[in-house]
Design a protein around this nucleic acid. Structure first.
Lengths: 155, 155
DNA sequence: GTACTTGCAAATAATTTGCAAATAT
DNA sequence: ATATTTGCAAATTATTTGCAAGTAC
């Protein structure tokens, strides 16, 4: 959907819009969650079967440098995620299924000031990411709870 | 200094306090900044020369699981950092020298609520990291600025 | 003494790079 | 037409694992 914008975004910076890059972008946007490079490959190949892993790496690097893709940090693993590109944004990652959502509320000034006072650093940027449980997984979980009443011993 | 506490912390959980683990912990704490596993090795070897890289990985994993070490994210690379261990804390990373400081102010309830409303996730945890310039680098930078008045062309 | 740890080397996994062929503009 | 981009395979680099020997308790 916003893939149209992608065309412009790339060309504006003098890069070419290739089937591979489009496939990577589409894969990420359709996944709606953080994907590791290998997973991006798998999905993007549905649309562009001859795609290679090295190209995925190269595309991710480029797209990230243009701000069209962001990293999300799931504890240690760093997976890529498609961001709609609109400037500064933050992510909530579902700890169960890995789904990613964006939110724009981002009012950290007071906190940054306090941290600056506390540490002597001059704060220039923040990296904030929330973790939680997405709507779907909340539903599933409450179903499991009903199951528990009926049968299982937990182990 | 808080390495004494480390002794207890490990034993309490049934792990042994080895020279290697101590060296890793000390290296991180003395570095005062995020270190990659290989850098941890280099520093820790000063204190424990026979230390191997595999052991560093194992130690970091263990220490992290006990909350004695945390990950900091420098753009894509995830380096380990020593955290004083006291529960929940956040880091400011200096974008110039990599130095890391902790701060404890962490008032995100309002923000978490807003994000929950916006995304439908139930928020369980947050990961917040600030980036900025530490006191030392601020000083250096202002010195360079005076230099500029005197001579350089910038390139 | 014994169970946990380590060191090393070998196995895997992850990422990058070189270069001829393909292709977007 | 042609400069960029790709695919593949090979090269690096990062991380994990197996196991005999070492060591904290």
């Amino acid at each position: 959907v916003y893939v149209k914008q992608a065309t412009e975004e790339l060309r504006e910076h003098g890069f070419r819009l290739t089937r591979q890059r489009l496939a990577v972008l589409t894969a990420l946007s359709e996944a709606g969650r953080g994907l590791e490079p290998a997973q991006v490959l798998e999905r993007a190949r549905l649309e562009c079967p001859e795609l290679g892993l090295a190209t995925v790496y190269r595309a991710l690097e480029l797209l990230e440098s243009l701000g069209m893709v962001r990293h999300v940090h799931t504890s240690k693993s760093s997976a890529a995620v498609a961001g709609a590109g609109a400037g500064h944004a933050h992510h909530v990652v579902c700890t169960i299924c890995g789904r990613v959502a964006e939110f724009s509320t981002c009012d950290l000034e007071a906190l940054e000031e306090a941290a600056a006072r506390e540490t002597g650093f001059s704060i220039g940027a923040h990296f904030l990411e929330l973790a939680g449980i997405c709507r779907e997984c909340q539903k599933k979980r409450s179903q499991e709870h009903s199951d528990r009443k009926t049968g299982g011993t937990g182990k």
